[in-house]
Design a protein around this nucleic acid. Sequence first.
DNA 1: GTGCCCGGTATCAAAACCATACCGTGATCA
DNA 2: TGATCACGGTATGGTTTTGATACCGGGCAC
Lengths: 114, 114
Amino acid sequence: MAYNVMSATCPSRVVLHRIGARWTVFVVNALAEGPMRFSDLRTRIQGITPKVLTETLRSMEADGLLTRTAYAENPPRVEYDLTELGLSLLGPLRAVREWAEAHVPEILAARDRS
Amino acid sequence: MAYNVMSATCPSRVVLHRIGARWTVFVVNALAEGPMRFSDLRTRIQGITPKVLTETLRSMEADGLLTRTAYAENPPRVEYDLTELGLSLLGPLRAVREWAEAHVPEILAARDRS
DNA sequence: GTGCCCGGTATCAAAACCATACCGTGATCA
DNA sequence: TGATCACGGTATGGTTTTGATACCGGGCAC
């Protein structure tokens, strides 16, 4: 009821700040294909460092966006999977991803002009 | 063709990086209501500092997402307005905003549990 | 000629992010 | 039995973004 991100003190600000973290959009889009292991994510999301991936996953887990399941095997196996909440975020974040992929030429052209 | 944000060197990465900047989502959602002056934006987007607002606006202007029109009046008047490209970004970014406003209780509850 | 309005800058501090190297645990293999 | 490997991370140190606070320049009204 009546949450508004334009208000500095509204809790939705915190939420937006979290889902706006640089790598959340990558993780959500990657896990859209199904559960993945840490190394799968690292391979799929090229260029992410293990430290930042760990931090992103831990934060998303704390926010209830995904689950982390560690199996007592060796070598270790850890699986990450979107929760229902995380899945509900996929709609918006897939749209953002698709927008980025669809508008590369326009953005690059605008940058060149300026 | 075939842009893919998961590839570290794909230009769509740069685009996603830009539109994922912390305040872009606020500016686009604010300007959805129509053109605004600098001080209007500052008032509407509570808590943004003038420095960061300026940087965000300059970057978005360079990317062709909005236009900046300065009138030779005094006191000065500067209007910002979404371009067609910026308007096309409103769909995705409004969805993100609405998701944040809609899921505050779940996120806060998950944080409390952990 | 003093003070106000507007659209910003300047300066410095904190937080987020990144590159690179390294670690602990068992299983596997020579 | 001792060296090696896979996996899921940490440690360390530097750069980039973001933030808080203060200040500025130019007209115009008084």
